[in-house]
Design a protein around this nucleic acid. Sequence first.
DNA 1: ATGAAAGCGCTAACAC
DNA 2: GTGTTAGCGCTTTCAT
Lengths: 338, 338
Amino acid sequence: MTTMGDVARLAGVSASTVSHVLNGTRNVNAATRLRVEAAIEEVGYRRNGVARSLAAGRTHTVGLSISALTNPYFGSLVHAVERALSDAGYVLIVGDSHDDVSSEQRVTGSLLDRQVDGMIVAPAAGSERTTLPEITRSQTPMVLIDRGEDVGFDRIVPENFGSAKGLTDHLLDLGHRRIAVVRGLAGISSTIERFDGHCAALAGRGIAVDPTLVVDGESSTDVAEREVRALMSRADRPTALVSLNNAMTIGTLKAIRGLGLSIPQDVAFVCYDDFEWSDLFEPRLTAAAQDVETIGVTAVELLLARIRGSEEPPRHIRVPTTFHHRNSCGCTSAPVRR
Amino acid sequence: MTTMGDVARLAGVSASTVSHVLNGTRNVNAATRLRVEAAIEEVGYRRNGVARSLAAGRTHTVGLSISALTNPYFGSLVHAVERALSDAGYVLIVGDSHDDVSSEQRVTGSLLDRQVDGMIVAPAAGSERTTLPEITRSQTPMVLIDRGEDVGFDRIVPENFGSAKGLTDHLLDLGHRRIAVVRGLAGISSTIERFDGHCAALAGRGIAVDPTLVVDGESSTDVAEREVRALMSRADRPTALVSLNNAMTIGTLKAIRGLGLSIPQDVAFVCYDDFEWSDLFEPRLTAAAQDVETIGVTAVELLLARIRGSEEPPRHIRVPTTFHHRNSCGCTSAPVRR
DNA sequence: ATGAAAGCGCTAACAC
DNA sequence: GTGTTAGCGCTTTCAT
């Protein structure tokens, strides 16, 4: 490996001069600069980022801890975050917490060890008491995304309550009264807020929540499929169904299809989260779509501000969803409502 | 920030002893170890991975350069790779090359600067002459995935030729003679091999390739949609269609639906790459599915072997696909064939 | 406009 | 079983 010293020797200057031409951090005589650049070229020199980080105290690296890299939602998020960071000269280290605090701690611990300049975390259930305090102690700037309680950090989450309420309201407008809901993983804020939105819609029409019409899909395709299959096999099955996230929507659709039921004739369907293929499904899915791009880009903006030393009070941003009114709700032509 | 020196002072030992208890790299008296561990706990010490990497000459970090993080295929790949690396004590740095050599060079350059111990690259078209030689010069172990020419590296790619041939053969078996193909991005091996497979199937039945039945989808949903729409608007449109990757399949389906045509009545359809929702689409999609998990895990295995110093000749592994025989091809019940 | 030199926090001979 | 010491390759004062 060739070092700055090699370059310096070849160019007949000191290492410090090489460093300065590389970083543009002080004036260098044009002729000297040329010599240095030629020497760099000649030996094929490439700076050692590790040594650089150690000396400078910054790594230009940001860590991202998310719960399930397989979920296309997080795929898009990683993409948005990577692009925004890359534009700012940072690189992204990703870790998957598998929605489990102990894996999460391994992941974030490793990021902390590597001296990331900041981190973006989609917290697993329970991390307020484990992972987050650890990050706080390390003084590493952090922003929370997707979910999480108010624990004194910047936080950027999708609008949950109103969007879920809107979904159920639409079903109510259509005359449904027995509406079942497929609820996400217990203990995370998005599950709670979306479920609350659903309940609020029912309450708005004076309908009590029927516990037999609430199924726990645990944010999992398989669990949702199993539970919905059981639910829809009952004689007193609901006339409409709302699924509260993308993974569970797939399970729900599989269950309905498996039972030979059709949407919306046998059961009306709406869901939180959109898919690239929502328009392709028959009938087209009525859904509340998150703006993942905005979530990712905003998270990076807030984080970079913190890294630059911002001492503003923590911000809490809610990114609105878009209601895609299609046909799975039972409407044929789709006037935009709400 | 607290350092090893602080811990050493508090425990009344030398820094080197602290290092050794931390790394288990030499015997330490049980009592001393306990004192050190207590001291670590007390000051909330956490090792500085940057300094560690500089001194040790290894970063326990692997870089991944892929072409399009938004593609769910790569999402799954990142997931598999991350898990395999994490199990081996490595972390993953990801970069998106946007299928463009100059972005790719930025990405890989940045990974090299950061002294990754190895890298996994899904090369962009043209990188044999730019990015790859640069990585070679740096002596960083590398494995190629998804595509790429034979340029003396370990390489792990899906089986393309035979899988694509099988898709077209199936259509031919069903009696189709005017079969159109939606081809991927020019210049990458997967496009070429899959297209060759298609042509070989036709040739096998003595059918010449009709250039008007070959559309370039450029591996893009939007381009495929536009091109397929044009193709299927013609009076002499084909009776069957094969799409050669996932993004183009979505575009193709949108075009067909937009035209009010139905599968398989108006046109039979088969595709390379599977989706989580292939079973949900009506009709269910007949597809050749890549084994992304195996690709990712194998890539990591080969890479770690290189990092550990293996000097074996470069290996070239083809991971077989699975033929999912469903209904979009026009078959109603689906006996497995081939 | 440039150089010398002191670290950054750790690992790994090498001594005892 | 433990300490001393010399780096790893760079950045950054401080001189000149």
